[in-house]
């Protein structure tokens, strides 16, 4: 079971390394969007501290969305997806591998750069740690839920817009609890409750999403 997941993750990471532009452009999108806010809103530390969690999280959602349309589209176009569906393993496991690889290429870099960007918003060290933690904990859920949308819109014309319409509403709980945890920490309430709920969301979506995506992919392949 783990062998096939590792094989898919290994293949997708190798492909991503050969095509670094995808990772780098999502990362730069995140950096630029987040950096525009302090410039636009003005240097008012209290206001920036209030804005920070929401801005960083919304930017993270949008940056994750950028790479979603290609999650299955490339494999679909060149026929690899058929071969994956014909592998002697449940398709859900293969999709799990693809979701993990997607997270390693999109969510993980965002979490690593987030504390640096948080400094622009005058966040305390504690809030920065919680912010990084929430992004680390929440982005796997984004990759998982996004995979369902990517599978459902596979092969459609204008699928990118439809994908955003499908997936962004489903991202709302992750946004609320992710940004909420940082907010609660900044205001001194403690973010443990939010973090637990965020972890629950991530584990639930990592458990369910690959199988839902696999069902959608089978329809796309018919």
């Amino acid at each position: 079971m783990f062998k096939i997941i590792l094989a898919v993750v290994g293949r997708d990471l190798k492909l991503a390394m050969r095509r670094q532009a995808d990772i780098v452009s999502a990362l730069f999108f995140f950096i630029i969007v987040v950096s525009l806010f302090p410039l636009g809103v003005g240097p008012e530390p209290d206001l920036l501290r209030t804005l920070a969690p929401g801005v960083l999280w919304v930017a993270a959602l949008l940056a994750t969305m950028l790479s979603l349309p290609r999650l299955f589209a490339d494999d679909y176009r060149d026929g690899t997806l058929e071969q994956l569906a014909l592998a002697p393993h449940p398709l859900g496991l293969i999709v799990t591998g693809k979701v993990i690889a997607h997270w390693l290429c999109s969510g993980l870099p965002l979490a690593l750069i987030a504390p640096v960007l948080g400094v622009q918003f005058d966040l305390s060290a504690e809030a920065l740690i919680v912010l990084t933690g929430t992004i680390l904990l929440g982005t796997p859920a984004l990759s998982g839920i996004g995979a369902i949308g990517a599978a459902l819109t596979l092969g459609l014309r204008g699928g990118g817009v439809l994908l955003s319409l499908l997936v962004l509403p489903l991202y709302i709980p992750v946004l609320i609890f992710g940004a909420g945890a940082v907010d609660a920490t900044v205001s001194g309430l403690g973010g443990e409750g939010h973090l637990s709920l965020l972890a629950a969301l991530t584990f639930a979506s990592l458990g369910f999403a690959p199988w839902a995506s696999a069902a959608a992919l089978k329809i796309a392949l018919e």
């Binding site: 060149d78 026929g79 690899t80 058929e82 014909l86």
Partner: peptide
């Protein structure tokens, strides 16, 4: 069944970058 099966479609199923 899929473990006994080998399929070659008219798409090549190869990755251009590899």
């Amino acid at each position: 069944y899929r473990a006994d099966l080998c399929y070659l479609g008219h798409l090549n199923a190869i990755k251009e970058e590899l």
